[in-house]
Simulated scan of single mutants.
Amino acid sequence: MNYVGEAIAYIFAAANWSGSLGIGRLLVQHIGYSLLGVAVAAAIGVPLGWWIGHTGRGRGAAIALAGAVRALPTLGLITLFGLALGVGLSAPMLAFIVLALPSVLAGAYTGIESADPVAVDGARASGMSEIQLLTRVEIPLGAPLLVGGLRSATLQVIATATLAAYTGAGGLGRLMFLGLKTQDYGMMLASSLMVIALALISELLFILLQRAVTPVGARNRKESP
């Protein structure tokens, strides 16, 4: 059967965009879950990463923790949290935060560590305090790597947010689980294609953002032959 044709027809059918299982509602939920998970991970990981990068303390522990977290199966985490917290959004959201945190943390501290030592030493020699050095020199210079960490985290969460439906929450995963249950593979593929489209749009936006936050001097060095 032509599942690709069925999937495209499902996406463009106006009747499938309304109601509790409408594409529009589930798409907004999926985007919301992804943004919330990354935002909470950023609220935790960015300040911690900046502190690690600036002071050099706890770097080994952060690397070990990030590696251990990356090895955890997301579905297993959702199941574990679901048993503890019950059905709904709480369990998958907690898993999304755990999933996003390593990439955000790594982007934050590697960004600070990558700051040009000459610029850092010059700023310190000019009498800048440690806070001024961090906020005026290291953070702006490290912004591209931080955005890279957020980019990776967002892509991971968008792809994994389909599992929110596993505990009865919303998102595009609802169509995947429903399609699997009813053997409507066109519906399943339609959901998959929309998740892929979201991931590609996210990648494009972060590429543009990463370029925008790259200091002009560094950008010119990359572009020069």
Results as ranks from 00 to 15, higher is better:
residue 60 G to S: 11
residue 203 E to A: 10
residue 23 I to W: 00
residue 154 T to V: 02
residue 28 V to N: 03
residue 193 L to K: 01
residue 102 P to E: 11
residue 53 G to N: 07
residue 185 Y to D: 09
residue 26 L to T: 02
residue 65 L to W: 13
residue 39 A to P: 10
residue 101 L to M: 05
residue 37 G to H: 08
residue 60 G to V: 07
residue 133 L to K: 10
residue 133 L to F: 09
residue 61 A to W: 13
residue 210 Q to I: 10
residue 89 L to M: 14
residue 198 L to E: 04
residue 136 R to H: 14
residue 83 L to D: 09
residue 1 M to F: 12
residue 106 A to D: 13
residue 107 G to K: 04
residue 47 P to L: 12
residue 25 R to G: 02
residue 118 V to W: 01
residue 187 M to R: 08
residue 117 P to Y: 07
residue 156 Q to G: 08
residue 104 V to G: 02
residue 13 A to V: 00
residue 22 G to W: 01
residue 29 Q to N: 13
residue 189 L to S: 04
residue 45 G to L: 02
residue 31 I to L: 12
residue 17 W to A: 00
residue 191 S to P: 08
residue 164 A to L: 05
residue 4 V to L: 14
residue 165 A to I: 01
residue 148 G to T: 10
residue 44 I to A: 03
residue 217 G to W: 12
residue 180 L to W: 07
residue 199 A to T: 15
residue 208 L to E: 13
residue 155 L to N: 01
residue 27 L to A: 04
residue 201 I to F: 09
residue 131 I to E: 09
residue 72 L to H: 02
residue 108 A to I: 13
residue 219 R to K: 14
residue 70 R to A: 08
residue 203 E to N: 08
residue 216 V to E: 03
residue 41 A to K: 03
residue 56 G to I: 08
residue 123 A to L: 06
residue 173 G to Y: 02
residue 166 Y to K: 12
residue 175 L to N: 08
residue 6 E to L: 12
residue 191 S to G: 15
residue 173 G to W: 01
residue 3 Y to M: 05
residue 194 M to L: 15
